[in-house]
C-alpha cells in the first residue's frame, strides 16, 4: 500500500465515523426516525475488505449486501454520501427514495444490493447474487457482511451448505462484535470462533483482527482472490466491537464500562492514525485538519442536501409496489 492510499483510507475511516456521529445528532434532533444502528468501531472491516473488492466500475462492481447496520458498507461500495444521508432523512433524493430508511440502503448503480433487517436473510440473497455472477461467467463475486448474531439463523447453515455444494463465488464476512443485539456470544452460541462453524460445510475459513485495517486488507485480499479464482465460497471472520449500542434505544446494560474501555484502546482509527504518525506520513495537525474538512463537507454539503431535499409525494405512495410500467402482454388485463 502506498502512502497516498494509507492517508486516503485513514480519511475514509474518519469520514465514516463522523458520518455516523452526525446521524446520531440528527436522530436526537428527530430529523431521522425509525431505528438507527451505527457502525462506529467496526470501520476497519468494511473499509478494509471492500478496499480489496472490485469497485469503481458501477454495475461491473462486485456485489455487496449486508444487514441493517449498513450505512458504511453502502458508502464504501460507492453510494453517494448525500444520498445515504438523504435516505436517513426520508427524502425523495435518498438512496432508496425515502422508502427504505437506515436499515434498507440500496444502490444497485454500484451493485450495493441492500441492507436487510431480517438477521440472516442476506446469506441466501448473497449466494443468489453469486449464482448470477457464476451463471453469467463474469469475474464478479458477491460479498456478504453480517454479524456473529446472524450465524444462529437457519439460513446460515442452509446457505453455507448450498454455497459449497454449488461452488458459488461468495465471500461471507462475519463481523464478530461479540453481541447478538444485547446477548453476549458466550450466552447464545455454542461455538465461540465463528469461522470454525463452517467446517461443517467443508468451507475455507479464517479468523483475524478486525480493528487493524492493514490486517483486514491482507486477509481480505487472500479470501477475495480465492473466491474470484473459482475455488468456491470463503468465510472470513473479523473480531471487532461496536462502540455504540445495538441501536439508539440501547442503554448497553449488558456490558461493562471496563470492557468498552478495553476495546476503545483498539479503536481502528486510533491504531491506524498512530501508525501513520509513527511512519511520519501524517501529523496530529494534519488529522485535525482532515477532521475539519470532513465535518465541513458533512455539514455544508451532505446535511444541507438532505435538509433541502423534497419529501416523497403522498400521491406516489403506491409507486414501486409492483413494476410500475408492466408489459401488457404478460400482465393483461385479460380480454374477455
Amino acid at each position: 500500500m502506498n502512502d497516498a492510499d494509507k492517508k486516503r483510507l485513514l480519511k475514509e475511516m474518519i469520514f465514516f465515523r463522523r458520518f455516523e456521529d452526525r446521524t446520531f445528532e440528527a436522530y436526537m434532533e428527530r430529523k431521522i426516525g425509525g431505528f438507527l444502528h451505527l457502525y462506529s468501531g467496526q470501520e476497519a472491516v468494511a473499509t478494509g475488505v471492500l478496499e480489496k473488492a472490485m469497485l469503481g466500475k458501477g454495475t461491473d462492481n462486485d456485489y455487496v449486501i449486508t444487514g441493517y447496520r449498513d450505512h458504511v458498507h453502502a458508502l464504501k461500495a460507492g453510494a453517494p454520501a448525500r444520498e445515504v444521508m438523504a435516505e436517513l432523512y426520508g427524502k425523495e433524493t435518498g438512496s432508496s427514495r425515502g422508502r427504505g430508511g437506515s436499515m434498507h440502503i440500496f444502490d444497485p448503480s454500484v451493485n450495493f444490493m441492500g441492507g436487510y433487517a431480517l438477521v440472516g436473510q442476506p446469506f441466501p440473497l448473497a449466494a443468489g447474487l453469486a449464482m448470477g455472477c457464476k451463471h453469467k461467467g463474469s469475474k464478479q463475486i458477491a460479498i456478504c457482511f453480517l454479524g456473529d448474531g446472524a450465524n444462529n439463523q437457519g439460513t446460515f447453515h442452509e446457505t453455507m451448505n448450498m454455497a459449497k455444494v454449488w461452488n458459488l463465488p461468495v465471500l461471507f464476512v462475519c463481523e464478530n462484535n461479540g453481541y447478538a443485539i444485547g446477548t453476549h456470544i458466550d450466552r447464545s452460541t455454542a461455538v465461540k470462533d465463528q469461522y470454525k462453524r463452517v467446517c461443517a460445510y467443508d468451507m475455507e475459513a479464517s479468523q483475524h483482527d478486525g480493528m487493524d485495517i492493514e490486517t483486514v486488507m491482507e486477509a481480505a485480499e487472500k479470501a477475495i482472490d480465492f473466491v474470484r479464482s473459482g475455488k468456491g465460497p470463503y468465510f472470513i471472520e473479523f473480531m471487532t466491537y461496536r462502540f455504540r449500542g445495538h441501536s439508539m434505544s440501547d442503554a448497553k446494560g449488558y456490558r461493562t464500562r471496563e470492557e468498552e474501555l478495553e476495546w476503545e484502546k483498539r479503536d481502528p482509527i486510533k491504531i491506524f492514525s498512530k501508525r501513520l504518525i509513527e511512519q511520519g506520513l501524517i501529523t496530529e495537525d494534519d488529522i485535525k485538519a482532515m477532521e475539519k474538512d470532513i465535518d465541513d463537507e458533512i455539514e455544508n454539503d451532505i446535511i444541507k442536501f438532505s435538509e433541502e431535499s423534497p419529501e416523497p409525494k403522498v400521491e406516489d405512495l403506491h409507486k414501486y409496489v409492483l413494476d410500475d410500467d408492466p408489459d401488457p402482454r404478460w400482465i393483461g388485463p385479460l380480454q374477455q
Partner: peptide, 26 residues
C-alpha cells in the same frame, strides 16, 4: 445441472438464492 437445479431440502434459503439471482438478471 446448472439450469435445472436439484436443491437440498432448505426451502427458505434456496428460495432466497433464487431471489438473489433474480436481482442480478436471472
Amino acid at each position: 445441472e446448472e439450469r435445472v437445479i436439484d436443491t437440498p431440502i432448505s426451502e427458505n434459503s434456496y428460495t432466497g438464492i433464487g431471489i438473489g439471482a433474480s436481482m442480478v438478471g436471472m
